[in-house]
């Protein structure tokens, strides 16, 4: 179990903190999705978990040990797969794997075995002799992932690992990542692709502006006790109703409203009629992750 307790982090000279008292419990042996718009604090959280940053407040523990204790006991316990192709383009596939294995302190038969299993996992057998700069985008992503698996980490941090790949490679990567927990690896997965997170993550956290906005299983998040109502009107939604029902405009004249309960629906319909609004379409209940995400993080454009 990875336990993150009241972690706050503020970058030097920043006016607002990147993380504000974030607490998460991530069960061992699953894929945990971390969602948030750009600047939400995902990378800061990943950097803290990878040991690239140190939090001034709060605690992080993995299976009861602090991250420093975990790394001291097993320097290969936590691995980071950055969003960039973090390897050497002028080196071959096997040369890259040998180098990063060596950088992890692996030697001899152990290094050889780990390289072979990483190559097999990422299906890189056909390109082992090629230089990394000659690989396609999908193969580069697979090499990036393979390097992350060399140390058989307990915790694997994947930062948008499918950016810029074709659908075939994406499906292969997603299937591969989904299979990792079976080998005892806990995966933290950040992505902007909601369908990916829905497909492979057992638990999800949505964060924005350094705060956890929602956390739980996909089921928990999609079936909120406060149901969402999707409305398409012929006139703009009156401002007072929008404020009261925390409306988010999904497109012109299309709104997503938060109801206190399904019993509140008749009253809302009366209020709309009284305000002279004509309803063209109405959808209550089941929503997808993207709608929840957009609702929680608002629609304003991010950097």
């Amino acid at each position: 179990m990875l336990r993150i307790s009241d972690i706050s982090y503020r970058y030097r000279d920043a006016t607002i903190p990147a993380l504000q008292a974030v607490s998460l419990e991530i069960p061992a042996g699953g894929v945990y999705g971390l969602l948030g718009p750009n600047g939400a604090g995902k990378t800061t959280l990943i950097s803290l978990l990878a040991g690239l940053l140190t939090a001034a407040d709060g605690q992080i523990s993995l299976n009861g040990q602090t991250l420093a204790e975990t790394r001291a006991a097993n320097p290969r316990a936590i691995a980071l797969v950055p969003q960039d192709y973090a390897f050497y383009p002028m080196l071959g596939v096997s040369e890259n794997l040998r180098f990063f294995g060596g950088a992890l302190g692996l030697t001899g038969a152990k290094l050889k075995t780990q390289i072979e299993s990483a190559i097999a996992f990422a299906r890189l057998e056909q390109v082992v002799g090629k230089r990394a700069e000659q690989l396609s985008g999908g193969l580069r992503r697979r090499l990036n992932l393979a390097i992350g698996l060399l140390g058989q980490p307990q915790l694997l941090l994947l930062d948008e690992p499918t950016v810029g790949v074709d659908p075939q490679s994406r499906h292969f990567l997603l299937d591969s990542i989904a299979a990792l927990p079976a080998a005892g690896t806990t995966v933290i997965y950040t992505s902007h692709y909601m369908e990916e997170v829905e497909a492979i993550c057992q638990k999800i956290a949505i964060i924005d502006q350094g705060l956890v906005l929602a956390e739980g299983t996909l089921e928990d998040i999609l079936h909120s006790p406060e149901p969402l109502l999707e409305l398409r009107l012929e006139q703009p939604l009156p401002e007072d109703l929008g404020t009261r029902y925390q409306a988010v405009a999904e497109s012109p004249l299309k709104y997503c409203l938060k109801l206190p309960s399904t019993a509140a629906l008749p009253r809302l319909l009366d209020e709309l009629a009284a305000a002279g609004c004509t309803i063209r379409d109405l959808n209550l209940g089941q929503h997808n992750l993207e709608q929840v995400f957009m609702r929680l993080t608002n629609r304003s454009l991010r950097d």
């Binding site: 691995a79 969003q83 973090a86 950088a103 992890l104 390097i147």
Partner: peptide, 20 residues
């Protein structure tokens, strides 16, 4: 040229995350 590739492509970050 090698150092800048390492810095720009996140390789240095990865090496530091590996505890180097």
């Amino acid at each position: 040229s090698i150092f800048i590739i390492e810095r720009q492509q996140g390789t240095l970050q990865r090496l530091r995350a590996m505890g180097l």
